[in-house]
Design a protein around this nucleic acid. Structure first.
Lengths: 307, 307
DNA sequence: GTGAAAGCGCTAACAC
DNA sequence: GTGTTAGCGCTTTCAC
């Protein structure tokens, strides 16, 4: 008691390295982000930080730049610095590094993307439901020739959204035209632009295009601009994620809103749970997305694209 | 030699906590970001990471949410975790925490914003030159009644840009009308929207508005939309920073581009320099911004705002 | 080159 | 409550 008062008076602050060395715990969580410049991720990080901060945990952020070797280095740097666990937005469907980590007993939760194996707990949104709502929205407007700009198939988001598009197309009574589906190598604008140009080049008619995320949709905007195609008059465009600032675009992008903040917050809660009761069976969360209709979609006109 | 081979074979990895405890060095830099959801900052972070990574340093990111007490907690958490120094984008013109830290010998570089005291090294862009180029651009188009939406005056960026606006206005032979200057409490969209509404409410005529950063300019877009004012026909709008995605807006925003990546990269270099030669006199860097003319500015029409 | 020993600042365990 | 001790895993020093 007396000694504690004195310590406080002298401004004593425990050294966390020494404490960590001794206890093997650090009340610190490492967060691996695939690309901070993608506006999708900062709101997720905010959700993580808020929850962890509330229980006295510190968040250590690291950027992997979509680079496997950088990811491994950052992962190890964090691990060697004694973090208690990881929240990770970089998961591929097959992910040797994380699968091995999980096997080795490293606490980890995947946010936004997940692996095919469900052994690692994850918090994702329902890609199937979200994509279906987009298809139904477009079909409801009268579109019957819908192109799809798919994301990387090695990512769960790229893969499941495409699968859902195929299923929803069939369910709506339309046929699948392989020529109207383009796969992209990454979720970035340049890829979206390239993809829509390729779709234009097929000469096939289509009145709407679904992009697997917002950045690909922005690329589609670019392609329209350079091709003289007017959105939504000539072509309806939709994205996915509802990242910030989409409402400021012209036209404002119709998209699917995933609960960014909640994905982060729930990931943090799940990880804390695993830390406190490691024996409990791992569980994953699937959050609901919502359709956000803005100005980039409308009923198809008798556009030149239509046939 | 033999023992080293064996160590490698067994997959030995040094524990950084123990090493840090012993050596008091960690090859780790703490980065304090005021708000990750502001798209201005991720490119700066990327510049920092690239440079630090190149010399084997690890970057530990933390978000302060523009919250002083959170800033202090994050700062201490990083310090107690043995970081070798800080790069900080949260500086206020008066900043007791950082001034004290600098006095206590903590290595630190301010990025993007700086304190009034030059005792702490900083890497900023030339707010005076950037703002002047905006005024000259507008004057060159024929504008002579220009409103100003100012940022927080406790931030160097808010303060120096406003000072530069006043100076450039005088230099261009115009008079300063206090009613056409509105101060904002933060660099966020809502504040920009509120500010432009207040300017509209004065009933004074103006044909252009300079916002102290891009987010405030986006808020001005919102205000125009709800007031039925068309940009740029009725009102030219400019921002500052050239954050990502501005080229996708309608109209695309005329702004001043600051070298985001370089601000980060040079901050990192400066900090590394201080770490290796702590005795050298601290120096600061002022980088050049460039005017980026897009669609949100044009010659003034005989708009209803004009008188 | 290798081996042994001390100590960085803390916590956990035990005696008081 | 307080004092003492050992030891977390590393680096540094000194002897070999």
């Amino acid at each position: 008691m007396r000694v504690q008062k004195a310590a406080k008076k002298l401004g004593y602050v425990p050294n966390l390295l020494a404490r960590g060395l001794k206890t093997n715990r650090s009340a610190t969580i490492g967060v691996l982000i695939s690309d901070l410049t993608n506006p999708l991720f900062p709101p997720i990080v905010r959700g993580i930080e808020d929850v962890l901060d509330g229980v006295g945990f510190t968040t250590l952020l690291a950027n992997t730049d979509n680079d496997d070797s950088l990811e491994q280095r950052r992962y190890e740097a964090l691990l060697r610095r004694g973090v208690d666990g990881f929240i990770v937005t970089t998961a591929h469907r097959q992910h040797p590094l994380f699968e091995q980590a999980a096997k080795a007993g490293v606490a980890m939760v995947l946010a936004n993307r997940r692996t095919d194996s469900v052994a690692i707990p994850s918090v994702t949104s329902d890609d199937e439901a979200g994509t279906r709502s987009l298809v139904e929205h477009l079909v409801g407007l009268g579109h019957c020739r819908i192109a799809y700009v798919a994301g990387p198939q090695f990512l769960s988001t790229g893969y499941y959204r495409l699968q859902a598009f195929l299923a929803a197309t069939i369910a709506s009574g339309m046929k699948i035209d392989d020529d109207l589906i383009v796969l992209c190598d990454s979720f970035r604008e340049v890829e979206g632009e390239r993809a829509l140009h390729r779709l234009f080049a097929t000469g096939k008619g289509f009145t709407a295009v679904i992009a697997a995320n917002d950045l690909l949709a922005l690329g589609c905007y670019d392609a329209c601009r350079s091709a003289g195609v007017v959105c939504p008059d000539d072509l309806s465009i939709v994205g996915y994620n509802d990242m910030p600032f989409l409402d400021k675009l012209q036209p404002a992008l119709t998209t699917v809103r995933i609960p960014h903040y909640d994905i982060g917050a729930e990931s943090a809660r799940l990880l804390l749970e695993r830390l406190t009761s490691p024996e409990a069976p791992p569980k994953s969360l699937l959050l609901n997305p919502t359709l956000v209709v803005r100005g980039s979609t409308c009923a198809p006109s008798s556009s030149r694209l239509l046939h």
